[in-house]
Design a protein around this nucleic acid. Structure first.
Lengths: 230, 230
DNA sequence: ATTTATGTGTAACTTTAGGTACATATCGAG
DNA sequence: CTCGATATGTACCTAAAGTTACACATAAAT
């Protein structure tokens, strides 16, 4: 915390691992960092975009997803405050056109580091390097899990599971999301989600209102998300 | 090539990027490398395994896949000669239990580098580091593409596409694979694949024999793998 | 040549999910 | 209050994919 203050970068407090770094290389890189705010709904990366800066999120969340021509979408993962943007990385490192897109979900604070400085930090700060590699590896895990879910799990299980996560993340027994948004998380369509939600409601798990879902029975939902067909 | 000779590591010729590296750090790491051969069918990594060494493939291919309790499988990507094993990496970097499994498809040559030496090379050889990061990023792309395919593409398209790739990779108009194996690539079952293959045969794309598929009309197959529903 | 193991063909059926279409409901703005 | 925009409910239908069950074919093994 005193670190964050000492370098004059308040946002650093969001990145404990990075705040602790004292290498010259990193401190140098820090001076090149520029803060910026993106309003909700900003498209951070579009398919095939190349990006010139390395991005780190200091506030808000960014949704990374794939989309089909037919307009369906599926979420791959979310990048929140204290995270770095792997998309930019992947773009830069692998040279591959990025397959995915990213959008801010709310007002998002980012710190941009120009590529040369990023590479400098990578080269010379082991702590920074480790932080980056760990994130990259974690994302790979995340996406692999998505493959597993999509391939082997029934949609209603995935939905129940998603609801569970959302309630938990919110630390509340209600979430404000439309069926449409849920569908976009799962790679399906609104009608399908509405149908399943209604079922869950009939089972007494949840209560539906416009734009909001209320958790009635955590146990029932949990039971659901584990084993449907048994 | 003279590099490979000069360090006495024949296998290095498989890794042009690495063979070119002259850093002391890397050469030091090289000395710690140990070669090893795994017969076909060796399980390189099982779910949740931790691994102590960093692996690079010098010969043969390793299939990385997810599997379900019901016995179905889906391929995530393949690691071939000249590639490094990201699984080990991810394990080590993210500390996450690995979600996937990996098996050798044929006789595979690997080079093992103990972790401390790997980290040494990472810390001190920029070229090595870039190589690693690029691979990691590429894998992420690969897996994202899988998500996209599985979520939005019909199975018959994916199958047609897979066949196309296999013929191409083989540089021949015949491949030796059972329907079962194809199913395992795509995350489905044998019966489904057999059915679709038969259709393709009826359309004049391919010819089926036991354990082998012959390409009759590349154009027809290509047409198929692009647009089915039109 | 007989047996065994593995691979393939295919029919009948069920389940899961997607698509269309439209009714209804809720909220805000004016 | 009325209108328009957004969100939800639901019925009906289609299609895609998985399941089961069994016949048959081919290759390898003794």
């Amino acid at each position: 915390m005193s670190n964050a203050g000492s370098t004059g970068h308040k946002w650093l407090s969001v990145f404990p691992e990075l705040a602790a770094i004292q290498d010259d290389a990193w401190l140098e890189t820090l001076r090149a960092a520029r803060e910026m705010v993106m309003p909700a709904g900003t498209i951070v990366i579009r398919r095939g975009d190349a990006c010139q800066n390395f991005l780190m999120i200091t506030r808000g969340t960014v949704r990374v997803y794939e989309s089909s021509e037919s307009g369906r979408e599926i979420a791959l993962y979310r990048t929140g405050s204290g995270d770095i943007c792997i998309l930019t990385l992947s773009n830069l490192l692998a040279g591959t056109d990025y397959a995915a897109e990213a959008v801010t979900e709310d007002e998002v604070g980012v710190v941009m580091i120009p590529m040369p400085f990023f590479q400098n930090a990578m080269a010379r700060s082991e702590a920074f390097r480790n932080f980056i590699m760990a994130t990259l590896a974690r994302r790979l895990s995340d996406v692999m899990r998505v493959v597993e879910q999509v391939t082997f799990q029934r949609l209603d299980l995935r939905l129940a599971c998603l609801l569970g996560q959302l309630f938990e993340r919110n630390k509340s027994n209600a979430i404000s999301m439309t069926h449409e948004e849920l569908a976009r998380e799962l790679g399906t369509t609104r009608v399908v989600v509405s149908r399943m939600l209604k079922e869950f409601e009939n089972m007494g798990c949840i209560r539906l209102q416009r734009g909001q879902i209320e958790l009635l029975s955590p146990e029932a939902l949990a039971r659901l998300s584990r084993a449907e067909g048994e």
